[in-house]
Nucleic acid binder design. Structure first.
Length: 396
RNA sequence: GCUGGAAUCGUCUAGCGGCAAUGACAGGAGACUGUAAAUCUCCCGGCUUCGGCCUUCGUAGGUUCGAGUCCUACUUCCAGCA
């Protein structure tokens, strides 16, 4: 028989938190877990060996970005084989791009209120949303395209990740309550369409692919709870927790969602991975996380340490380790802050690429280790203590 | 020694009578959360009550309302000839 997703809760923490294991056709994910983001079927500047070396358990790619290669990926046997990763995988629907190319063009995903919210004029946007789907312009080719729930599911089922995301509309912080009501209705209709289409194709590659419905609803409790209830009534294998959050609202919004969602199905918090967000998310019942931040910030010179993040720019000639007692391959090999800064600032492309690799390895290991420790603390009942100590040291 | 050419903010560079002076790099600060991101923003002579003020383009003079820009001398460097 074709076995899809299986989720077992192994320990509980508070009303919503839990540690568990997600069993997929390509392996297990011990939760809470951070999934590395390899949008284009590979993590920038990290090899599959690097990913295994830092303890990554799963990789997220994007159906939108891989749409042109879907048939090729299917022919190879699916994303796990095609990417060379061979472990559990997840694909996003492309729903995020509806926002990042559309109403959220610019830096709207910002979680800081002071930074304000930029919303560009509609004509400048690359995506237009209707109930049918999304018309958008490929930012690289300028070609007009159309994507809807059916196409997203077809693409994702060809790519063949173990877990797929229903096609949703992520609203931006700039959108009003009224717009969020409208967008949520659309997301719910799209969720049903996604599920129907997914069921037609989920076994096409010879193993059972699973589908998560995505909870939207912005920052409003009534919308969030209703969205979670409605999705819970459908035959999804798990749930994505989506949205553009203000940091201060995150915990409460997750609580609204997860109080309504069935406890026995896994939940993925989309697009967040800063340590405080992971600890809060795990406490509020999120099982898996994904985010580009560890890799992107590494490339931009931000190195994670237990005493807070550092900007490598400031460490020319510094022979201290990136982070004391770090167990990542970069630190174990003896690379120092000064070493990495020199590679980063080098005019030599190969040296820069080596920097991107070494720094990404460090930051990803930092976040993966945090999820491992979170899980361990939940299993032995010391989560609260672990969280408090970690945050006290990390947040200045 | 002669003849050309050149000297600008850490470096290279723009500038051909209205200039605190272009651009790049280096340097500094910040941002980044389902990747239009090996990216983006800001600072980069000094002071400032942010309106300005002061000191700058090898050195010293000069012409001019006004000189980094024109003239003279000097210094240094480069090229060619000796």
């Amino acid at each position: 028989m074709k076995v899809g997703l299986k989720f077992e809760v192994q320990a509980r923490m508070g009303a919503l938190g839990r540690a568990g294991v997600i069993k997929t056709p390509h392996g297990e994910i011990k939760t809470p877990a951070f999934m590395v983001v390899g949008t284009h079927a590979e993590v920038k500047f990290m090899s599959a060996e690097d990913l295994r070396a830092v303890g990554a358990q799963a990789m997220l790619s994007n159906g939108y970005h891989l749409r042109g290669r879907a048939a090729e990926i299917a022919a190879a046997g699916g994303l796990a084989v095609y990417s060379g990763w061979h472990g559990p995988t997840l694909t996003d629907s492309g729903g995020f791009q509806v926002m990042s190319l559309g109403s959220g063009l610019g830096k709207v995903v910002s979680m800081k209120r002071e930074q304000g919210v930029v919303n560009t004029a509609h004509k400048e946007r690359l995506a237009k949303v209707s109930d049918d789907g999304v018309d958008f312009v490929d930012p690289f080719t300028g070609e007009p395209e159309f994507i809807d729930p059916e196409r997203s599911m077809q693409i994702q089922c060809q790519i063949g990740a173990d877990i797929h995301m229903a096609f949703d509309e992520l609203t931006s912080l700039a959108d009003s309550y009224e717009y969020n009501v409208e967008a949520l209705e659309r997301t719910m209709a799209w969720s049903r369409r996604s599920l129907a289409e997914h069921l037609k194709h989920r076994d096409d590659l010879g193993y059972r692919q699973s589908l998560y419905g995505v909870v939207q609803g912005g920052r409003w409790e009534d919308l969030r709870r209703r969205a979670a209830q409605d999705l819970a009534s459908l035959e999804f294998d798990g749930f994505g927790l989506g949205g553009a959050f203000l940091k201060e609202d995150l915990g409460e919004i997750l609580r609204w969602c997860n109080e309504e969602l069935p406890f026995e199905k896994p939940r993925h918090l989309l697009g967040l991975s800063h340590p405080d967000d992971i600890l809060l998310g795990a406490e509020m019942g999120a099982d898996t996380f994904d985010c580009v931040a560890p890799m992107r910030e590494a490339r931009h010179g931000k190195i994670y340490t237990l005493d807070g993040d550092i900007n490598l720019r400031k460490f020319a000639g510094d022979d201290s380790p990136l982070d004391a007692d770090c167990d990542c391959p970069t630190c174990r090999a003896g690379w120092t802050r000064g070493d990495l800064r020199a590679l980063w600032r080098s005019g030599d492309l190969a040296q820069k690429q080596q920097f991107y690799n070494l720094a990404s390895i460090h930051n990803v290991r930092f976040i993966v280790r945090l999820t491992e420790q979170t899980r361990a603390a939940m299993l032995d009942g010391t989560f609260g203590d672990f969280r408090d100590k970690f945050l006290k040291r990390y947040m200045h």
